Amino acid sequence: MSDADWLSASFNHGWTYSQRIAAVDAGRGLVELLAVYYTHSSRDVWQQRLQAGQIRLNGELVRLDQLLASGDQVCWQRPPWLEAAVPASWEVIFDDGDLLVVNKPSGLPVIPGGGFLDHTLTGLLQRRCQLDGESRLPRPVHRLGRFTSGLLICARQRETRAKLSAMFRRATAGDQGCKKIYRALAHRNLNVHCDEVATIRVPIVQTAHPMVGKVWVAADSSRQHDSKQSESRVLTALSTVRLLERRQDADLLEVAIQTGRPHQIRIHLAAIGSPLIGDPLYGFDGQISSAATPGDGGYCLHAHRLLDVPYRKRLHGFTACSPRRLQMKTER
């Protein structure tokens, strides 16, 4: 991409986070509950924000900790912060005025979160609509991680979004839905063969992590890290893996997912000894880095094909050209 294809780092206008106090939390302290609701910051940090005048209680600025009552409205007025530069262009795969399918570049968040508010695909789509005078904003019907490139479906009409979102939710749980096929660059694994399709059924579960509180991991590896993990949080997950090309320093894999669990491909490939090259969090033998978060990048993962997408009484299929590192030699 050229410089013109990037949105430069810049400050946003800040954001107000709001929380209504439930009856079960009545009588607890303001700073204590802020640390409970927003685990990314410690009680000491919330105390500093309170004293800096960033917290309002029922519309009034407060600077001293106090006990809360059921129904109280707590607002944190987060000051403007610097958002990193992101790719700002993408290939349009399909657009009929309602359905919009794009090839999202790696590095571009889909929706606000993880330190991003304006520098997102949804934010950029909104800007384009305003510049073009278009009243109907295309909104994503599913998600891709910031550093996952490839096919993302958006829709302008509310009814279309509702139908497709429901389909993707069913597919996430493993019910019948569209077929999702990815490409991934992984560490070489001689147990994965070109003439075989490997099936991975390792469940996924949350476990403790020092930087973000909880992360999703393979159930087997979570027991190594958190023996008290509740079994009720275990999610079934199903992936299939096929070796497309064995390289001197990597395996090019095709991964189809029948469920859509958080970070499923990264977790499943690590579980079978094929972690993504450059993945800072999920490593060999179920090892989870305490110095990385799920939102950190460095790996190559691409949503290559979506098949059997129901739209206007037909099943549609879409393909997004892979980045060069994820192309087979015969495709270059």
Rank of each mutant, 00 (worst) to 15 (best):
Leu108Gln: 05
Leu61Trp: 13
Asn103Arg: 07
Ala69Ile: 00
Trp81His: 14
Lys104Gly: 02
Asn58Cys: 03
Trp90Glu: 01
Leu108Cys: 06
Gly97Trp: 12
Lys104Val: 04
Asp96Val: 14
Pro112Leu: 08
Val86Asn: 01
Ala85Pro: 09
Val110Lys: 07
Asp95Val: 08
Leu108Phe: 06
Asp96Tyr: 14
Val62Met: 04
Val101Ser: 03
Asp72Cys: 09
Ile93Thr: 09
Lys104Asp: 03
Ala85Asp: 07
Gly113Arg: 08
Leu99His: 11
Ala84Ser: 15
Gln66Trp: 00
Arg63Ser: 10
Leu61Ser: 13
Ala88Asp: 11
Ile55Ala: 04
Ile93Gly: 01
Val110Asn: 06
Pro112Val: 10
Glu60Tyr: 04
Gln66Arg: 15
Val86Gly: 02
Arg56Gln: 10
Trp76Ser: 04
Gly71Leu: 03
Pro79Met: 07
Gln66Gly: 11
Gly97Lys: 13
Gln77Tyr: 09
Glu83Gly: 10
Pro109Met: 10
Gly97Leu: 12
Gln73Arg: 15
Asp72Gln: 09
Arg56Pro: 00
Gly59Trp: 08
Trp76Phe: 15
Asp65Gly: 10
Gly59Ile: 10
Ile111His: 15
Pro79Leu: 06
Ser89Asp: 05
Gly59Val: 12
Ile93Tyr: 05
Arg63Gln: 13
Gly113Gln: 04
Ala88Cys: 13
Leu61Pro: 10
Trp81Pro: 02
Glu91Gln: 15
Phe94Met: 01
Asp98Glu: 13
Asp98Met: 11
Gln73Thr: 14
Pro105Tyr: 04
Trp81Asp: 01
Pro109Ala: 06
Leu99Glu: 03
Asp98Asn: 12
Trp81Arg: 06
Ile93Arg: 05
Ile111Val: 15
Trp76Asn: 01
Trp90Gln: 02
Leu64Pro: 00
Asp65His: 09
Leu61Met: 14
Gln73Val: 14
Asn58Phe: 02
Gly107Ser: 06
Phe94Arg: 13
